[in-house]
Design a binder for these strands. Structure first.
Ligand code: SF4
Ligand code: SF4
Lengths: 160, 160
DNA sequence: CTAAACGCGGACAATCATTATCCTCGTTAT
DNA sequence: ATAACGAGGATAATGATTGTCCGCGTTTAG
């Protein structure tokens, strides 16, 4: 049981997009290069973020990706959800219903309820942190210098 | 990202063992039959539970498995931990350290801290429910009849 | 003491999810 | 028109999970 690495990559990709000035976009290949990810697979991740309305894409020459919401409105959970989808961590395989030979499945949930509650607790923590709060942390003392270098890289690679 | 089905199976296996009288044991094959799981693989799960000291095994003819703790002392989390192991849901692949070209990895954690907190929240819910609280729920009105049938099955299959 | 019933452990093989590549298409700036 | 980009699907490579097999040690029964 492990979270896809795509979630982490996506978070950092969105953080990069957050450094763009208004109206500018960053080509997908530049992003995957910077993240050292495989370009072809990374496009799939970006498209998932697009479907989830976290980011927007513009096609054509000088196309690329940009945020689709204010950074305060994008939580880590939004990104997780876009990449991992809605299926929950746990899902009953109906063993108990089997054990007890129940006809209808309703109201026989010893574990499902508990696991669902656990999952809600887990997700609620991920909902607390937003792209803008993460960006702030990147601007703290110890990272400031490197973060500025990153921003300059974004300036160079962006278009439009 | 999905939890192993072995966790669910193990929980129900432990619930079965909880129905045993003191000193009695249940052979592994009986358990896997009842759970409709593959016997050979299921033994692996049982052995994980043994290593985690959740259950105990006795070898030899008339051998089998039984609880190793009082049912109030076994949480769903204990079983989860036995099966899934200690590795966390999320683990950084060091992308940010890479992005920012940091030399040492310490104190550069934007996501790790958050994810760890989320995981703690998740696990703490699983720690609330114990085998004995689950067993109580099985004895509630709507399941009572079937649960008694299960107990009789346990009586028949147990040894020693 | 021998054999049979059981758990133990490791070396595989099969299955399934995730990651990665490729190729064709639609869109837009030049 | 063409070149640079994203969209989407088919399909491989990889890796984790699940499942099987076989030989071993231990204990009870005969
Ligand atoms: S108790 Fe809930 S989780 Fe377990 S089998 Fe029944 S419906 Fe599924
Ligand atoms: S910020 Fe934390 S999680 Fe991200 S790369 Fe650095 S150490 Fe790893």
């Amino acid at each position: 049981m492990h979270m896809k690495t795509g979630v982490e990559q996506s978070v950092y990709a969105v953080l990069l997009l957050n450094m763009l000035p208004d109206k500018a976009v960053l080509p997908g290949e530049a992003i995957s290069q910077q993240l050292k990810a495989s370009p072809t697979y990374f496009r799939k991740l970006l498209r998932k973020l697009v479907s989830a309305d976290v980011i927007a894409s513009v096609p054509g020459v000088k196309g690329g990706f940009k945020l689709n919401k204010r950074p305060e409105a994008i939580t880590v959970y939004d990104i997780y959800l876009a990449i991992e989808g809605r299926q929950s961590l746990y899902s009953s395989s109906g063993i108990l219903g089997d054990l007890l030979e129940l006809e209808k499945e309703e109201s026989c949930c010893l574990l499902t309820d508990l696991m669902e509650e656990a999952e809600v607790a887990w997700k609620s923590v991920m909902k607390r942190e937003t792209i803008s709060s993460l960006a702030e942390k990147m601007n703290e003392q110890q990272f400031l210098l490197k973060t500025e270098a990153l921003q300059q890289w974004v300036q160079r690679k962006m278009v439009a």
